[in-house]
Amino acid sequence: MDQSGQKATNNSRIDSKFKYVISNIHGGEKLLNCFQCGTCTSDCPIARFSDTYRPRQIIRMAQIGLRNRVLSLDALWLCASCFTCTDHCPQDVEVANVIRVLRNLAAQEGYIPNVFKELGSSILETGYAYRIPELRIKRREALGLPPLPRGNPENLGRILQNVHFKKLIEKRGQQ
C-alpha cells in the first residue's frame, strides 16, 4: 500500500544515526557496504519458505534508519544462522552478523521470542541450554557413558552478572 511507503519515508520515524550504531558493534561493521544486490535473500533457505523474512530488506531498513520498525519485526528471529548469506555476499557484509546485532538490540528493547527466554533461563539455572532430566543423567551409567560433567550454574551466574540478558531475566523475575 502507498500508506506504508509513506510511513517508510516519514522523517519522524527515521533514526539517521542508527546505521552508525550498528556499524560500531562487532559484526555490524560492514553494514554500509551493502548495495542491495539481493544475493542474501535469493540464497537464503529460510526466505524460500517464508513470506516475511527477507535479509536484503532488513539490511536496507537498518541502513535507512527505520530503527523501531526493524527491531520489532517478528521475521528478524527467523534467521537460522546458516551463514550462507555471509559467505556469498559480494560486498563482504557479514549479513548474518548484522542480523544478530539487530536481534541483540531488539532483545534490549524487550523483544525476545519465548524459545530464547527458555534456553537462557535453563542456562542460568543449570549451565546447560536444556533442562536435562535427572533420569537421563542417571541413565548414562546404564548406557556405559561416563558421568555428565557438571554445569556449575552458580559460578556461571557470577561471571554473567553484568551481561544484559541476565539483568533482563532478573528484572522480569522481580516484577
Binding site: 562487532h26 559484526g27 528471529w77 534467521c79 544462522s81 544478530r100 546485532v101 536481534r103 541483540n104 532483545a107 525476545i112 530464547f116 534456553l119 537462557g120 542456562i123 549451565g127 546447560y128 541450554a129 561416563p146 558421568p147 560433567p149 557438571r150 554445569g151 556449575n152 550454574p153 556461571l156 554473567l160 551481561v163 544484559h164 540478558f165 541476565k166
Partner: peptide
Amino acid sequence: EMPEFNCCGLPMDPVDHKM
C-alpha cells in the same frame, strides 16, 4: 572428560552476543 562445562554459548548469541 571436561572437569565441568557450560553450554557453548551459541543459543544465546541471538539475544546477547556478550553472554
